[in-house]
Design a protein around this nucleic acid. Structure first.
Length: 234
DNA sequence: GCGACAG
DNA sequence: ATCTTGTCGC
């Protein structure tokens, strides 16, 4: 791919907050995508005491969820972790990883929130907007907002409300386990985001996109027997 | 002022 | 995110 940032990254918190508010106006919360046959999962990690940021991206065939391609890139970390400004720390490396792909995805699944954000511009919104791709945010922990009690049954979900506005959903991807937090990144409605995410979970708590990206980023080397390109197993 | 706080 | 063994439960 050929994704390019249209703005600078070396901003202080005040400048970053203003940029988020400006760019948030460009986020599309309605469906705008065609046939989805290839989806990407992005996972970020850190090495050498946070000095290096590692971005791992995988492309899976949809809805089969078999591995089509993957890449891992590393680059110096330039921004600290500050709740509310995660994208300024992780999006640059994520873009590099996406640009290194040999197979282009038609939709992105991110580790982190989209519109579940103080200014409605989380990591998934920032990356989706710059990549101009439909994008969904899936977080493992609650950031902001509240919700009604969530049934323990698989597939159950409840809207997440912040200041009277629905900004995402808490989803029981697997019966009886801690839920995940789903929200729009860009060009995908919340309803579609929930449906597509559940389609990628296969009964596991997290979608295969993040399970695979986390695997290629860390876990033992692939390729060996059946864990290479084309496999469905993890 | 106090607690919460995506990865 | 990351540092890490055993262990409780289905």
């Amino acid at each position: 791919m050929d994704i390019r940032a249209t703005h600078r990254w070396d901003l202080d918190e005040t400048e970053a907050a203003r940029l988020q508010s400006d760019l948030a106006a460009q986020i599309e919360c309605a469906d705008r995508f065609g046939a989805v046959e290839r989806i990407a999962g992005i996972d970020l990690g850190y090495e050498d005491a946070d000095r290096i940021t590692r971005a791992a991206v995988v492309v899976l065939k949809f809805p089969e969820l078999t591995l089509l391609d993957y890449k891992v890139v590393r680059k110096p970390t330039t921004f600290p972790y500050v709740p509310g400004y995660l994208s300024f720390r992780e999006v640059p490396a994520a873009i590099d990883a996406l640009n290194a792909l040999s197979v282009d995805p038609q939709m992105l699944f991110c580790d982190g929130n989209g519109t579940i954000h103080p200014r409605r511009f989380g990591f998934a919104c920032h990356l989706g907007l710059l990549a101009d791709l439909p994008c969904i945010g899936v977080a493992k922990n609650r950031f902001i907002g509240s919700h009604e009690p969530l049934p323990e049954t698989q597939g159950a979900w409840q809207p997440i409300i912040d200041h009277g506005e629905t900004i995402g959903a808490v989803v029981r991807s697997r019966a009886g386990v801690k839920p995940i937090y789903v929200s729009t990144g860009h060009r995908v409605s919340l309803e579609s985001a929930i449906r597509l995410t559940l389609q990628c979970c296969r009964g596991f708590r997290q979608p295969d996109t993040t399970r695979w990206s986390h695997r290629v980023a860390s876990g033992p080397p692939l390729e060996s027997d059946n864990l290479g390109i084309g496999s469905t197993l993890l």
